[in-house]
Design a protein around this nucleic acid. Structure first.
Lengths: 385, 385
DNA sequence: CACTCTTGGAGAAACGTATCTCCGAAGGCT
DNA sequence: AGCCTTCGGAGATACGTTTCTCCAAGAGTG
């Protein structure tokens, strides 16, 4: 039986190398054809259980591991999905710069693994060597800028792309985002109810959707309620600039009595700046910032934060992507977007399907002028000083 | 010229599908053989520059992207390296649980990308589907437990494995670790010099190298200086347990006047516990914890931390791994470890080469009983009360 | 008995690249 | 003129799967 191994394979007898066992070796050792081995191991074909288990046993004994490369070549599926975050500044990638990314990536990895896929972290620069070298079944893109050439190229070549953050002009298979406008308006209302008269904003200079939508919502709210906008913008990727911007905001003559910071470190920076100027939080200054970090539960005072729920986003994005990957039948390769599961479709040929995820405001002491525990007197109406 | 496309390929004329251009299409369009195309694109072979550039131009025009799967199958190299962290508890993986992992992973990804490799995050459970489905050139393992079956299996099948954390009994190609004993002794000395009389330890119950070596160093130091050990151990993956353990430690009758916490959140937990017991830091209690988070620069008071330099570790680990991958000439596939660059070899057939990286103690107010700025009197000798 | 259907499985063709081998032609040298 | 060398490139094979097609033998059916 084992003697047949040499004759059945195409492998010349000279190359007696100590290589890993291939499917042919298993077939020879089990006395069946490679078709049978493949079917037995993959649970396909019509085979009696006896044959199936025997083949599996032989494969196990030989330590057979199917070649992922060969399988990928044959099936066109690698089981790999990419994860890309737009890079600001010079760093090859600013991944996990904020807790948001770390959380999101973690959730995305878990979700992918749970469905049998693995996640590859890739740089956003389209021309990086590694992009052409990896067989990707699809890609998740975090915060693609308008007209991202990388996304366009991926989409054109038929690779499903799902973005975290509503894309500007990039064609994507689907996208997921928070309702940033609603979130900002909610915070502004929350601060107003806590007694804020002039709410300031600490925002960024970049053009990603998050920054843009949030800022626009703030400006719109200002015009609506008739408040003069009070904000400072800084390059969000530079932590030092954040501290400076926070300081600038509180040093203004028209100093706000409440501030919302769009980025993770803003809370700490604003708190430090407030101390420098002798402002007590929340008595003189109400504070809210967008952050996933739980350090703000332990600051003095604890700071109210807006969570974008990165775990939910990461999970959703990956699941949408894998749905798209598995939903398409590798047909013409053209109308991938249209073969997308119908429940997500917004229109026949319209914009790609998007999902809005809710945010969560975690209210802490920094945005409540009257501590809930010690309040005895009835709350003052918002308009009163 | 274009008419030749149909004749040259093996592809039957019936399948006129809109598929991505393959190397054959490029060859046909350029009027050369696929050998020439491959050589031209990969910079191999001997071709005049004119042919080379012409082929490249045609490839570009056709939007040709070489199939990563086919290349991997042919060359045996995927350009992919795995990153695995041992999972505690039930979570599929606890990645980025602590800032250490996030930082380390980020550095590792950057380093890999810089050398043309991409990183795949994989679960530590050996039997997960995805392991067999991905062609890996090598793997980084964070904190492998003793006798890790996953590591053994990888190593046996010829895949280079480099571990972050000195491995117990697993055979690895190389490993990188901090000098945990020196780090702990340094901290204990530092606390002693600051006036500590009884130093406590907050440690973990798991058996990874970090926990084990650190605890042993502490115990050894205790016997050396004649102090009764004062420590609490808890499952490090459970944040709630950490707070409880910190509380227990400070509630003991033999309460320490200085504590070193091995894990990231210990600083916050200990600070909170100290407040509960009315202990002032650093006056009544000196505090140091191991953390990569910079929130400890902003706590009240700022807490001295030990940094394990995860970025350096991540970079080093990946570079060692890629050295191993590229250093071996795909020869017999047996003695991969021995073909390792000589500078890392410790002995011919001895233990795998290891590298110890230095740690950094970031001294802040919590471990200095006398504030450096206000101190006028000469420092008291350590033994004195 | 002639026939269909089902079962169990074999054969062979891809998948798309890299690379080893080999070959014609042109030029240089004696 | 004959030979050697280099240049430029073509042919064919192998990488290890998956899967489509097909076949033989037995079982049921009229």
């Amino acid at each position: 039986m084992t003697a047949a191994a040499n004759q059945s394979g195409r492998r010349p007898t000279t190359s007696r190398r100590l290589e890993r066992a291939g499917i042919r070796d298993v077939a020879a050792a089990a006395g069946v054809s490679i078709t049978t081995v493949s079917d037995a191991l993959n649970g396909k074909g019509r085979l009696p259980d006896e044959t199936r288990s025997r083949v599996r046993e032989v494969a196990e004994r030989l330590g057979y591991r199917p070649s992922a490369a060969a399988r990928t070549l044959r099936t066109g599926r690698s089981g790999l999905i990419g994860l890309t975050v737009t890079t600001y500044g010079e760093e090859p990638f600013t991944f996990t710069e904020f807790a948001y990314f770390a959380e999101m990536a973690r959730a995305a990895t878990s979700a992918a693994l749970g469905r049998g896929y693995a996640l590859v972290v890739l740089p956003a620069s389209s021309r990086h060597d590694v992009w052409g070298n990896i067989a990707l079944d699809g890609t998740v893109v975090i915060d693609p800028p308008d007209q991202d050439p990388l996304v366009s190229e991926l989409y054109r070549s038929g690779v499903p792309v799902v973005s975290d953050g509503k894309p500007g002009n990039c064609p994507v298979t689907a996208w997921v985002d928070n309702d940033h406008e609603a979130a900002v308006l909610g915070i502004l209302d929350h601060l107003s109810e806590a007694g804020a008269r002039r709410i300031g904003l600490l925002t960024g200079t970049s053009t990603d959707t998050y920054t843009r939508l949030s800022t626009e919502a703030y400006l719109g709210w200002c015009t609506k309620v008739g408040q003069e906008p009070v904000y400072e913008a800084y390059p969000a990727h530079d932590p030092a600039a954040g501290a400076v911007a926070a300081d600038r905001l509180l040093a203004r003559p028209d100093r706000p009595d409440a501030v919302y910071g769009l980025f993770d470190p803003n809370g700490t920076d604003l708190l430090a700046a407030a101390r420098r100027y002798g402002l007590r939080v929340p008595d003189d200054l109400l504070l809210v910032c967008c952050s996933e970090s739980d350090v703000y539960a332990a600051t003095e005072p604890p700071i109210t934060t807006l969570s974008l729920k990165p775990r939910k986003i990461g999970t959703t994005v990956v699941n949408l992507l894998i749905d798209a990957i598995e939903g398409v039948d590798s047909g013409t390769g053209v109308d991938i977007a249209r073969l997308f599961p119908p429940r997500f479709r917004t229109a026949g040929n319209g914009p790609p399907p998007g999902t809005l995820m809710p945010t969560e405001l975690i209210v802490r002491a920094s945005s409540q002028r009257r501590s809930p525990r010690t309040t005895v007197s009835p709350p003052r109406p918002p308009g009163e000083v």
